[in-house]
Design a protein around this nucleic acid. Sequence first.
DNA 1: TTAATAGTGTCTCTAAGACATTATGTG
DNA 2: CACATAATGTCTTAGAGACACTATTAA
Lengths: 220, 220
Amino acid sequence: MPEQEFPIATIDAALFSLTERGLSVGLLERERDPFGGQLALPGGYVRVEEDRTTDDTARRVLTDKAGVTVRYLEQLYTFSGKSRDPRGWSISVVYFALIPPNVLRDGKLGCLEFVSVDGLPTLPFDHNEIIETALRRLRDKSTYSTLPALLLPVEFTFGELQEAYEQILGHRLDLSSFRRKIRELDLIEVIEGRKRGGRHRPAQLYRLKSDALEAFDRTI
Amino acid sequence: MPEQEFPIATIDAALFSLTERGLSVGLLERERDPFGGQLALPGGYVRVEEDRTTDDTARRVLTDKAGVTVRYLEQLYTFSGKSRDPRGWSISVVYFALIPPNVLRDGKLGCLEFVSVDGLPTLPFDHNEIIETALRRLRDKSTYSTLPALLLPVEFTFGELQEAYEQILGHRLDLSSFRRKIRELDLIEVIEGRKRGGRHRPAQLYRLKSDALEAFDRTI
DNA sequence: TTAATAGTGTCTCTAAGACATTATGTG
DNA sequence: CACATAATGTCTTAGAGACACTATTAA
């Protein structure tokens, strides 16, 4: 086998959180060309000396740019080709990640700026397509898992959980069916204490069960 | 940005068909080291001059080794790391493909040998893990699509379709619920006047509707 | 007419949507 | 006590499994 010219190998990440403007994705102003100065998904080269797998690359890049460890990370899809990046034939393993909103400050986290997924501008590379794909996956998984709970602080009320689902799915849910469904997934548990707020009945607090994260691992 | 050392970029493919021994996967005797002489999944290097995307790579490799165009191809998952291939840090974009059994000759197709997925031997690299992943995807999609129809000749009876599902899922299905479910998916159609039989009532022949393939495209 | 598989009908049980009702805190 | 949101209960409908039943050909 002759010496082979290998493609550029990178990762990109679609990191979601909830802000006042609803479901949002973390974007970064590119420092360098191509597309210097424009907002784009965070990404970076695979470093073969440093990273054990591309999962490591993704975690390293996100920790770099966001300054914190993400709450949830899964491989999404791999985009490739000669025309998607002007620097040449590239393979980008794309990751899909979640972080709760309480770590954001003013819609920002490290160098990342969180922008609502409704009415995104045209982004460089194939990043609009990547975000579409990530949103489809998030919405799909939200119909049969408690993934949206990862977009909330560790303690949350049923009402907050339902609101997270509604933000993600983009429509209202029936209160009663929602509670039934969540209960039978059996991935959240009652914790001591109630959330008091305003002049009404206080809400019970819940958290994810410790085995809930493993349950998400039917990733592929 | 300094010169970057990029990983080895390859594709691997899990190509499934139905044989007398049930659901089977196409394996190839490796010509070269590493693991020369052993059975493994077909795969190959990405050729940046020749391939537009890794999808092209997959199609090229499969056409090479099998001698025919596959019936169905979708990206499955990307496996990467420094230890999965002794030649060095590698990225393998893995594809999942289907081909009907009538093109096989004696359990073989081109250089590929089809081996039952039950009781597979230990394979080189991470190929056992890859096949596990592919099987999970195939079984999962078979619960809500007519993907198994792609493992049959273009004309098939309801009974043959049900048998394909049962081979894939590994258990029996109820006749009546099965027909109801397939009917409401509305992806197959009656072929007028075509029936098949032995010494019993002949069975109606069906084929996939022309838009059925697009319906599978909620791939990601 | 019988063997053998094709195909339909019906009963029951479960899950989900719609929506009414009860519960419990604060001002 | 009134208000506001939390939480539960009930009615109805849709879908799925189980299984009995009918249909149609060749030998």
